[in-house]
Design a binder for these strands. Structure first.
Length: 536
RNA sequence: GCGCCCGUAGCUCAAUUGGAUAGAGCGCUUGACUACGGAUCAAGAGGCUAUGGGUUCAAAUCCUAUCGGGCGCGCCA
């Protein structure tokens, strides 16, 4: 939570000749009376040292003498509470204003690969994918800011059975356009986008394509659908570094390579004319089929090859972001990765829980089958892309959240995105006003009374720690909550204390704080994929 | 039936991964505009953290049982 304090405590412990524990927990008390930061280290040490935690706390506290800390207090069961030096908080404002790289933490030298969305190119993206897309993108931005070396990846399933069904679906719809019979089986795709593609083909080529084979329609479909997917993701500011094609992996022999490696290690066996993987040995419910009795692969097999490919590309950590409806897939995936020689810790899965859309009281129904689905474009059109991005990362990933469309488009403080954007716009407006009066931003703080803006200062100081823990916990919602709280504190400060007054020197000092607030809100919003507006 | 996720104010959600008096917003009640943008602010009411048992200095958080909800459980992808 706070590196600097950790180090200070460590030096005290060393002086006391106490072995330094694995982790020193620093937290921010929810009650301000308990200081800016606090640690429970004394209570944790009490057992081993056979000493009263209060005594230990006092010994540690007495050894602390840092300019950074104004006061150290020991409280009841054995907490040590720290009160930061206010001058330090003002120095922090200066840093925010002057350092472009503020909020970008030192490199960790850890290579992370994050795979998200990875929807099959057999139809349009729908709103179900949008949460994973926004989460994945925000997570990547936050990981990068906190010093990880991040690669963003989309796995394109352009190789399996479903692609053949896509080809058939398009061809049948095309035949329909040409006035022939259309035979769509249950395995086919019935979405409107397939009809649209057929229509496009017909209007461009009339009935010249009737003798083209299924593969022709497959490739055409993938190309068109994928570019549509990319386009939609782009409008959401969601981007990727690498698009890996399943078909290419198959062509390059990666699947055989993975299969051989698993066979060699003795993880496979044959039964009922099929080849199985002993995933049960690594905690899966049952063993899984790799090669079906008809000789084709299951979905699982190329996916193992894909993960082998990622491993060989040298990432320290793979993060897969999966929809809740695929969580049953996790144990076999983790099993396979371990069989390929990696530790459990090398692969992480984040499960995106379902989203329910509501308009006030009314539940918005949508289903893939009836074609009644809300598309992402419609969602963006209805509430705006900032709200889409914000709302999807506003909640912890494992809550089955409600997305209130009515709330998301409200222009008032009920709507959290609006509230935050307004705080930013307000900062901009004050700064513009100051510019008119030719007031500059001060770099010295002589007149300002810290008490009037203490809350704002310490909230701004929290920012870097928020980035760190938001990244460590893979939880963008921590950042979202932070901006909201920061905005609230700002609005409150704004109401209580006028910035631009006749006292020009004092005004300039206050402007520095306003500008720092503006910068932090804008940086934080950027990490959520939202461009901060200067005007509403 | 088995597995995963979840159950916190009337509603939507937090809670620094075991910390101090469980916090926000909406809604409800009351108050504040001669204003750098009132598109906002200040205050109040509202809780046996689904339920029972356990672990310890400390439990919404960990273990266990039960109840309730969501999602999975294919030689589909």
């Amino acid at each position: 939570m706070n590196k600097k304090l950790e180090d200070i405590i460590k030096t005290s412990l060393t002086k006391m000749d106490i072995e330094i524990p694995d982790e020193i927990i620093i937290e921010k008390p929810n009650n301000k009376l308990n200081g800016d930061y606090s640690t429970n280290i004394a209570m944790r040490l009490a057992k081993n040292l056979h000493k009263n935690p209060i005594e230990i706390a006092h010994s540690i506290a007495d050894l602390i003498n840092e300019e950074y800390i104004e006061e150290v207090k020991v409280e009841k069961p054995g907490f040590i509470n720290f009160f930061l030096n206010k001058k330090y908080l003002l120095d922090n404002i200066k840093r925010i204003n002057e350092d472009d790289k503020y909020g970008i933490l030192p490199k960790k030298n850890i290579k992370v690969n994050v795979e998200y969305v990875s929807a099959n190119p057999t139809g349009n993206l729908h709103v179900g994918h949008a949460r994973g897309a926004c989460f994945g993108d925000s997570l990547c931005r936050i990981l990068s800011a906190s010093g990880y070396d991040v690669t963003r990846e989309y796995y394109v399933n352009d190789g399996g059975n479903q692609i053949n069904n896509l080809g058939i679906s398009i061809k049948e719809r095309y035949k329909e356009k040409c006035g022939l019979d259309c035979n769509l089986t249950d395995d086919c795709y019935h979405g409107k986008e397939i009809i649209d593609i057929a229509e496009e083909l017909y209007s461009e080529y009339s009935n010249e394509l009737l003798d083209k084979d299924i593969e022709y329609f497959c490739n055409l479909g993938i190309e068109k659908l994928l570019s549509k997917i990319k386009e939609v993701l782009e409008t959401l500011n969601v981007s990727f570094d690498i698009w890996t094609s399943e078909k290419t992996l198959r062509k390059n022999g990666m699947v055989e390579k993975a299969l051989e490696s698993l066979k060699e290690k003795g993880y496979t066996y044959e039964q009922d004319d099929a080849l199985w993987l002993k995933t049960q040995e690594y905690g899966d419910d049952k063993d899984r089929v790799l090669v079906k009795s008809d000789g084709t692969y299951t979905y699982f097999t190329p996916d193992i090859a894909y993960h082998l490919d990622k491993i060989e590309r040298g990432y320290d950590k793979l993060i897969d972001i999966l929809g809740a409806d695929h969580h049953g897939y996790v144990p076999r995936l983790k099993a396979a990765v371990q069989m390929l020689g990696k530790d459990k810790e090398n692969i992480e899965t984040e499960i995106v829980q379902m989203v329910r859309f509501v308009r006030g009281e009314e539940i918005v129904k949508f289903s893939k089958r009836t074609g009644n689905a809300i598309t992402i474009e419609e969602l963006i059109e209805e509430v705006g892309k900032s709200a889409v991005r914000y709302f999807f990362v506003m909640r912890s990933l494992d809550t089955q959240m409600d997305f209130d469309l009515e709330l998301a488009k409200k222009n008032s403080n009920e709507n959290p995105v609006y509230y935050v954007e307004y705080a930013h716009a307000r900062c901009c407006s004050i700064l513009k006003e100051a510019e008119k009066k030719q007031l500059t931003i001060s770099t010295e703080f002589n007149k300002i009374s810290v008490d009037s803006c203490n809350e704002l200062l310490s909230k701004l100081y929290e920012y870097e720690n928020v980035i760190e823990s938001s990244a460590a916990k893979r939880s963008p919602h921590i950042l979202t909550n932070y901006i909201y709280e920061l905005s609230s504190i700002f609005h409150s400060y704004y109401a209580s204390d006028k910035v631009i007054t006749d006292d020009y020197e004092l005004s300039k000092e206050k402007l520095a704080i306003i500008n720092a607030t503006r910068i932090i809100i804008s940086k934080a919003l950027m990490l959520l994929g939202i461009e901060a507006r200067e005007k509403m």
